[in-house]
Design a protein around this nucleic acid. Structure first.
Lengths: 211, 211
DNA sequence: TGTACATCAGTGAACGCGCGTTCACTGATGTAC
DNA sequence: TGTACATCAGTGAACGCGCGTTCACTGATGTAC
């Protein structure tokens, strides 16, 4: 079986799938070495192409990273939607969505780093985040999920406010985990339980808030 | 008044306070341009010294960044401790501690970025985080604060577990805010209210958890 | 108090390196007739 | 079907740059006698 991104993919002079292969290589290098450690030269070499070939498909390094981030947001939204549309009670599905988020951050650190890098917010990617669920926006998806999971609402609390809290907690756990700053072997439950219990507490806290 | 870090500080051939000035310059540059954008050459120039002078005080770039991170942890722990030892009810002081955390992340992005950079966990700095409160560990401080603020405990929930949740939420809010990914002008309350309400919900959630 | 000397914080020039990017080019592909 | 030609995805060599780091050095400081 042949894999894109492998130098042996080359079908002669034309690669045939260079753009995809470059995005894939970038994602992998960012995952391995971080956004700092990723270089165009390495990506080109991995793909089996000269460094200059990249410029047929991207304006430059920044554009390539932005493309990785873009695909990351798309992929994340897909996974969250899939987790949410599974079987079980609404609360179970909502919980599974949280797990899917942490899994994504852990298994796709390349995507995740690109998505939340310094320049990501400026390059119009935030629309992907804050867009409606129908437009594939991950945040909109979360808000919708909250509305469906808890149809009675949260009293005076705006679902978007609650969604922000859930997201911030998820993001914080994911970042601390990625940085190796969650205590290991302390006898404490792991990150998934951390998120599950935290989300439950946030939701319950919102529901018991009365004007 | 003269400031360290200003080229005019030079008292002739010997700087007199070069180490401090370099750490300060590094912190400022990291704040302005991020960890990627910070260079030793810029720091040396700002301080008014040749790039080579740095090597009298640090083994290299990495060591300088580690020193910035070290001071960041120390400074954060001090501020948290100060916020906690103020006036008011325990809950008020605990809330103020959360605000101090967010303020630190916002006002000292140089420290914060260095503290939570990729290499920070490996360089023994995690001890500063996870150490006891008596040793100045910020996390230990948080655990202690929870114990004192809620002397009745949290039923079956380990205070360290709750502290992790609070910290992850704080960190997540701070990171999203720094990346410009918290929605602005949406009519939603700001980050401080986000943290206050979130922490309250987490604490209440823990208190109402019964085996 | 004055002098010799050890110490050490600085200089400044240079280094090797690897980066992102450019350029004129060439080989492959697809289409018109 | 065969040929001419436009298109365009690749090459490969080179670029300028700025980085972190080194080196032999020099000037200032402090101490012993």
């Amino acid at each position: 079986m042949r894999h894109w991104g492998d130098p042996s993919d080359r079908r002669g002079y034309h690669h045939g799938n260079l753009k995809e292969a470059l995005v894939d290589a970038a994602r992998r290098f960012i995952a391995e070495r971080g956004l700092l450690g990723f270089t165009l030269a390495d990506a080109a070499k991995l793909v089996g192409v000269s460094p200059a070939a990249l410029y047929r498909h991207f304006r430059g390094r920044e554009a390539l990273v932005a493309e990785v981030a873009f695909r990351g947001f798309t992929s994340l939204a897909e996974r969250l939607a899939r987790a949410l549309s599974g079987s079980g009670t609404p609360l179970e599905r909502f919980t599974r969505m949280g797990e899917a988020y942490l899994d994504f951050a852990e298994k796709e650190p390349g995507y995740y780093a690109a998505m939340f890098s310094a320049g990501a917010a400026e390059s119009g990617l935030s629309a992907l985040l804050n867009g409606d669920a129908g437009q594939g926006g991950a945040f909109g998806l979360l808000v919708d999920a909250l509305r469906k999971t808890f149809p009675d609402g949260f009293g005076p609390v705006d679902p978007r406010f609650l969604a922000l809290e859930v997201w911030a907690l998820s993001h914080g756990i994911a970042m601390l985990d990625a940085a190796g700053q969650l205590p290991k072997g302390s006898g404490l439950p792991g990150k998934h339980e951390l998120l599950r219990a935290g989300v439950l507490a946030l939701v319950q806290g919102a529901m018991t808030t009365r004007k």
